[in-house]
Amino acid sequence: MRWRGLLWCSAILPLLPVALLASATVEGRVELPKSHSAPVQAKRYQIVTKGGVLSTQPPLAVVYLDGTFPEPDSLPTKQVTQKDLTFIPALLPVRVGTKVEFPSLDDTYHNIFSYSPAKRFDLGRYRPDERPVPSQVFDKPGLVTLRCDIHEHMRGLILVLNTAYFVMTDTAGHFRLSGLPTGHYTLKAWIDSKTTREQPVDLKNGQTLHVDFP
């Protein structure tokens, strides 16, 4: 009876997704750029302008495990909101195939578009109460820069990744990526459109690896 159970287990194990067996963790720190963006809104020809200032976005990085991983059956839908003339979040990492919705919480029109090779689209002008909320499926890996055709200062980024294992750093650059599969991989830190750092990692079951990107 015991032997039969073990046989069943050995037969089923190779069929399980790698993620279910994952148990390694990587943590560390990414050296983030010192500068931060403090956007200025051009209000020259707006008859009605509101007071207040645009929120500033601290630089953040995305740390991800590069490799070939099984395709998921479904992916959760993500959102990039337009609020107070800003994209929230300003940086969103997603897996290839993810649908991203763009709800607007402002009482003025936006016109989100991207000319990035990874995804070229123009959502046009839509009211905040329009349903379904305009969305796009990001089906190619790469960096997608979101802009607004009406508000020149608005910038957002969607980093489309070929991996399920990614995490954003906090504003100090700290990250913790858990539930990783064991094996030999490359750990990458995307810092900005020009800078991606990488380090080879050997992930072992139950181990927490410390990796810094100076």
Binding site: V40, Q41, R44, V53
Partner: peptide, 9 residues
Amino acid sequence: FLDTQIGSQ
């Protein structure tokens, strides 16, 4: 063009 914001007002 030069756009300058001083404080919120």
